[in-house]
Design a protein around this nucleic acid. Structure first.
Length: 251
DNA sequence: AACCTGCACAACCGCACGACA
DNA sequence: CTGTCGTGCGGTTGTGCAGGT
């Protein structure tokens, strides 16, 4: 497929856009509107592929784009919507006026992938610890068996109970109930830090969702909202809850 | 001062999909 | 029905900068 007015013999310019190119593109779009990107490239006198022109316009030149840091509110929205839709960045971007899918995608990668990674590392560490304990205990048991000591049984049972308890504690929990299929598995010990993170940053239920008056009535939304309400964490800023009385999210 | 590292952002690439001839 | 074109999307890579060593 060729698309985008790409002529293979043509060497489209790549790399960062110059001010001059931006100006040409902006003026062209102002005059002729968005769309027909392949002809934009030709008609505006830009040696850029249509695809590149569209991207530049959508992500950088389009009026009304917010620049600068993602606010905690926006972060909360991103988390929630990512829980709903996964990596549907363009869909998520629709609920964040002035933000582009690219921006959100980048933000998620740098902020949350990192978090997930470190959390996974923790898990591995803890798993290894439990395994070590178990192995150590097995060794001890074998030694005791070899010595033919029966009286240690009671102690073993106690120890096994402890191990079992420890294992249960190590059981994976979904650190964020709304994540559904995308839930990030963490150890229970991590929940506290996660909660800290959520509360400290004023995420989720604090002052969110005050965007367009669109209501999400999907059963999924309601279900997730209920899950969130039932969550053990106590989030602050309940007055601004996004879950509306009509049983849907106000977006 | 030089180097390294991590972060934020911009841009590119490949693929999928819908419209249309 | 099929092929082409235009478009959008998600993943990935490149780059510049700031902060740390």
């Amino acid at each position: 497929m060729m698309g985008w007015g790409d002529f293979p013999q043509q060497g489209w310019r790549k790399g960062p856009w110059t001010l001059e190119e931006d100006k040409l593109l902006s003026e062209y779009v102002k005059l002729h509107g968005e769309g027909r990107w392949s002809s934009v490239a030709r008609c505006a006198g830009l040696n850029r592929s249509g695809k590149s022109c569209r991207l530049r316009w959508v992500n950088y030149l389009r009026p009304g784009l917010k620049r600068g840091q993602i606010t905690p509110q926006e972060e909360g929205i991103i988390i929630e919507l990512h829980a709903l839709w996964g990596n549907k960045w363009s869909t998520i971007a629709r609920y964040l006026p002035g933000r582009t899918d690219n921006e959100i995608k980048n933000y998620w990668r740098t902020h949350f992938m990192k978090r997930e990674k470190s959390s996974n590392q923790k898990q591995e560490k803890q798993k290894a610890q439990v395994l070590n304990k178990k192995l150590q205990l097995q060794k001890e048991q074998e030694q005791q068996k070899q010595l033919g000591v029966d009286k240690t049984k009671a102690i073993d049972i106690t120890n096994e109970g402890k191990i079992h308890e420890a294992q249960e504690k190590q059981e994976m929990v979904c650190m964020y109930p709304t994540l559904g299929d995308h839930c990030l598995p963490v150890m229970s010990q991590d929940v506290a830090s996660w909660a800290d993170f959520v509360v400290d940053d004023g995420l989720l239920w604090g002052g969110l969702w005050n965007l367009d008056d669109q209501v999400c009535h999907t059963s999924n939304c309601s279900k997730i909202a209920k899950q969130n309400q039932a969550t053990a964490f106590s989030f602050g800023g309940g007055s601004n809850n996004a879950y509306s009385s009509t049983g849907g999210y106000i977006f």
